[in-house]
Design a protein around this nucleic acid. Structure first.
Lengths: 214, 214
DNA sequence: GTAGTAAGATAGTGTCGGTATCCACGGATG
DNA sequence: CATCCGTGGATACCGACACTATCTTACTAC
């Protein structure tokens, strides 16, 4: 297919597709003439993944470049590719200084969960420590090992189920595509369900506290 | 305290504090002279909440204005304030057209959970329907009622616990502050824990699939 | 008095994620 | 065979966003 068809099928403005091509997020089509190039289904799938990460996940374009680099290296094992992706797709730049004990708290939670396959250098581990610092700073909140471990136990249910759902017999690119998009989209889905749960349960306790007169 | 001290205590650039004042996110201090104004602890708390929503939650400044409007209306009951906030703080503009059956799927999940106190007009309900549309569109994913209900059950554990932790005897502003910031920060915390769980469990199955030789 | 800084207003800056324009030309169309 | 639409490719431009810098006036502490 031609680039205009690619854009139309993915429901993305043509100018944006050209932009992604420029940025190296989308591999060039096979040139069939001086002003002609052909794109195939793999381009379409890639484009859909990119838009999903951008629009649903809010992943910045510069991070997308790192994602595609990992995805496009056929010799990188699936798991290693996923760690690269994981380090990059979770929101927020926030470097933020952190109090020293926060990493220890995080590691205690990881130990309590038996999550001993989390890399020491995982960016998410650092980011979590930053958040823990923030929580234990000034303010009404606070994050002890018990609370965090409760959260981790709930997260574990999700993580287990989601990993179990991946078809490990499928080929590399399929697995990765599924895990990357699923991780982002279902992350949002869960967040929304949590918010809806808040709304329901808070309505319940509000009614108990202040019952309608009569 | 003077504005410069306020800025310093919250660890926010003075220019940014002035910007928030201009934008009406932060109420003006009490004027004590033509070029003098006093700020108090409530300003400091407000400023901390604002920064947290911005930096951790990624909430845009325009949405922050709606948040403070709701927070600053002392006659708005806590629960109604929270619904206003909930409609505004969950990420993404994404209007996105949706296939008609998606809302029905979402409502079936809500019914299965007994979440009958979710408002019909909840923005998150709509957003979730958009995501479901996306999931059931082209691509390797797909979201049936069963899967979504599983997610909702996990989310329910979090939502219940989080609502239960709120001190409902505290005064309005305290409750709201705690719920708003907690909802945002712990949302991030959970997301990170989920990612770390993915990393661990995926490492596990990867090792099983391709055991080290020897 | 005089140096320092406050408040308040106005204008400017950098980044991000696209859009728009332009060009030269090849393939489809009549 | 003439035309003209649309292509690939390059470059320039744009609007939103969240600040940031400057400038002015005047009080206040020394």
């Amino acid at each position: 297919m031609l680039v205009s068809e690619l854009a139309e099928r993915a429901d993305v403005p043509l100018a944006t597709v050209k932009y992604y091509l420029r940025e190296g997020l989308l591999p060039a089509g096979t040139t069939t003439g001086p002003r002609r190039a052909e794109y195939d289904e793999s381009h379409l799938r890639r484009l859909r993944v990119l838009r999903l990460l951008r629009e649903v996940g809010g992943v910045p374009v510069t991070s997308l470049r790192e994602v595609v680099q990992a995805l496009d290296d056929p010799d990188l094992p699936v798991h290693d590719t996923m760690t690269v992706v994981a380090d990059v797709i979770t929101a927020q730049p926030e470097p933020a200084q952190q109090r020293p004990e926060s990493l220890a708290i995080v590691d205690a939670v990881l130990a309590a969960m038996g999550w001993d396959d989390v890399r020491q250098e995982s960016v998410d581990r650092q980011r979590l420590a930053s958040l823990v610092s923030l929580l234990n700073g000034p303010g009404p909140l606070g994050a002890g090992i018990e609370v965090l471990t409760f959260y981790a136990q709930v997260a574990d249910q999700l993580a287990r189920a989601e990993i179990a759902l991946v078809d490990h017999s499928a080929e590399r690119s399929q697995q990765l595509e599924q895990m990357v998009t699923g991780s982002v989209v279902y992350g949002q889905v869960f967040g929304l369900l949590r918010a809806l749960g808040h709304e329901h349960h808070h309505a319940q306790v509000s009614r108990e506290e202040a019952p309608v007169p009569g």
